[in-house]
Design a protein around this nucleic acid. Structure first.
Ligand SMILES: [Mn+2]
Ligand SMILES: [Mn+2]
Ligand SMILES: [Zn+2]
Ligand SMILES: [Zn+2]
Lengths: 171, 171
DNA sequence: GAAAGGGTTGCAATTGATTTGCGATTCGAT
DNA sequence: ATCGAATCGCAAATCAATTGCAACCCTTTC
């Protein structure tokens, strides 16, 4: 298994790259740079994990409280279209977004108890998928693999579950 | 690749098994057999493919026009809970349901052009997932793998796409 | 086989996420 | 600075799915 590791600190270089990529996209498309879009992507790429629209909006509002849902939704669509961000749906009914990290593509294991999401990438798995597609005369553009289950480390799992419950109460 | 094959004709034996399974579940749960539920499952298990709620309701209404959305939704939830049916979401925003066939579990390749959904099952792929989970100290309950792309056979793909477009116009 | 109790239905209203219409505002090429 | 086009913010609309509730139907009991 190759776990995907995310840097703990914000990687300013990564953010810069993403911002530049978005600027490119905007220009290519004949769209406009705006204060709001800049704020949103700057905030977004400094967050890590699988961010919901609400989470993002909350953070964005700390910078500019006048920005609303519609603009965040619209900007996220642009980010997805520009291929700088991927949309995820883990079955809790709301979309989540993540900027690619070093390992662009990866898959997920989701603990149904504590909600922990582990990211991984395995070349053999990817290759096998290609082989199966080949045999079926099919060309893969993208794929989605999610493993749902539970942590075997019950101790760690429970700890996470509890801290999550506490957080939910507090918020 | 092991393509999953579905019988072309309704397999009455399969339907019977499913109906019996549902009866069992209903009883175990202390729920009630009703005319509506019987109609819905009988219709559902005679359909094949990945059925949306609306599609199912349309068919159900041919038998009993008084049955409404709520009952179909509620019955589908029971079917999923009873493990006789799986819910799928292929990204078009609505849930689809399928009764298991001989090959209980399978994954999907979805053509973004013609909408064709190929079903397959590959033991190596399944085993590899288990191995990766093991390495991550994770226990898999279920998983979801979807390959999105296009048919390489452009002729067949276009034919399907066109017949689909015609159908949409006609309906 | 009638009555009782509890699950079920159908409908309409509600929810929750996401989208959209639109008047006001901002962008950016000229 | 100007002007047409793109964008914003808000509220209203949409869309799938869920739910409250009064009427109704099953099953068990007597
Ligand atoms: Mn991820
Ligand atoms: Mn299937
Ligand atoms: Zn866990
Ligand atoms: Zn195709």
């Amino acid at each position: 298994m190759t776990p995907v590791k995310r840097p703990k600190e914000v990687d300013e270089n990564f953010v810069k790259e993403k911002e530049a990529g978005f600027a490119d996209f905007i220009q290519r498309k004949g769209l406009k740079t705006t204060r709001q879009r800049n704020t949103i992507i700057s905030v977004f790429f400094r967050l890590r994990g699988h961010i919901s629209v609400e989470e993002l909006l909350n953070e964005v509002k700390k910078v500019n409280p006048r920005i609303g849902y519609a603009t965040v939704y619209r900007t996220l669509h642009l980010l997805v279209e520009s291929n700088l961000v991927e949309e995820r749906r883990f079955g809790d009914g709301l979309a989540r977004y993540e900027g690619h990290s070093d390992v662009e593509h990866h898959d997920h294991m989701i603990c149904l108890e504590c909600g922990e999401i582990s990211e991984f990438f395995n070349p053999r798995l990817e290759a096998l998928q290609e082989k199966l597609a080949e045999e079926n005369n099919f060309e893969i553009f993208r794929h989605r693999l999610e493993l749902y289950g539970v942590c075997k480390d019950k101790e760690a799992c429970n700890k996470r579950k509890n801290s999550k419950a506490a957080e939910a109460r507090g918020a």
